[in-house]
């Protein structure tokens, strides 16, 4: 069996804040279409890893390669256009914009066709194919009913879904999902797992999932990476890593 060339390849990632080391020498791969869980106790450095991959933090050392390309000091928006999407632990929605507009904007950016003359001539209204695609994603994520509501009027859990929809509407090749289930109840989490599974199966989207909800991780990921104190302490299938004593100690608190 040949392993496909990895979609994302993180090598020796290190980042510290002031004196505290948040991430130290972290290396892992994510293959195309694969979904990988990144788990670990609070403060293990999971969100920092995501931010370094997405260019929102600059690592002190190490490299991030995406589709065989070294990302180096590339700006976040360029990484997004290469096909990385992200949802955030602290939601980053556009408060005054309606849910549908969130998706339309994300779709427009993907086709990067903002031209001043087109705006001035009034030729930038949403096209039928865009609207259809947006409706499709709204339906998948279950936001159709709030499509016309500004994000500021939505609860925290719904805002997370808006972020998810905004990230996947442009069909990224890799989705960095940072605690997408927090604020959702058990049934909604189950539906979220179904959505992520569908996307992975039908669109070949790879997912890097940072999550505490054991059910969601178990349901979605092919493979899990466990971090503690900024280091990778285990990796393998979810069942394997959960069986390791070091993981049980650090994460589940079982001696």
């Amino acid at each position: 069996m040949t392993t496909p060339a990895p979609l994302l390849s993180v090598r020796g990632l290190t980042k510290s804040f002031g004196g505290a080391v948040a991430v130290s020498d972290v290396s892992f791969d994510v293959a195309a279409g694969e979904s990988v869980g990144l788990i670990g106790p609070n403060g293990a450095g999971k969100t920092t890893v995501c931010s370094c991959i997405f260019g929102q933090m600059r690592p002190d050392a190490g490299s991030v390669r995406f589709c065989g390309r070294e990302l180096g000091r590339l700006a976040t928006w360029r990484r997004a256009r290469l096909g990385i999407g992200r949802t955030y632990q602290r939601v980053e929605v556009f408060p005054e914009m309606t849910v549908r507009d969130h998706l339309l904007v994300a779709l427009r950016v993907r086709h990067h066709d903002a031209r001043l003359w087109r705006d001035l001539l009034g030729r930038s209204a949403p096209r039928a194919d865009e609207l259809a695609r947006v409706e499709e994603v709204l339906e998948i994520v279950g936001l159709s009913e709030v499509a016309e509501v500004p994000a500021a009027a939505l609860g925290l859990g719904t805002c997370r879904l808006v972020e998810l929809a905004r990230a996947i509407v442009a069909e990224p090749r890799l989705l960095l999902a940072d605690e997408p289930s927090s604020g959702l109840d058990e049934h909604e989490t189950r539906e979220l797992a179904a959505v992520l599974g569908t996307l992975q199966a039908t669109r070949g989207m790879a997912v890097l999932l940072v999550e505490h909800d054991v059910f969601l991780v178990d349901a979605v990921v092919d493979r899990a990476i466990v971090m503690d104190l900024g280091r990778v302490i285990a990796s393998g299938t979810f069942g394997e890593v959960m069986a390791e004593p070091a993981v049980r100690r650090a994460y589940l608190g079982v001696p």
């Binding site: 928006w77 360029r78 914009m97 507009d101 994300a106 427009r108």
Partner: peptide
């Protein structure tokens, strides 16, 4: 009303969010 206006309004709403979907 146009595309640029939407990008700008995304930028006004959240710079992190706007960069995250690829707005330059």
């Amino acid at each position: 009303r146009g595309t640029i206006g939407r990008f700008l309004s995304a930028m006004r709403g959240s710079e992190i969010g706007a960069a995250g979907i690829g707005v330059n």
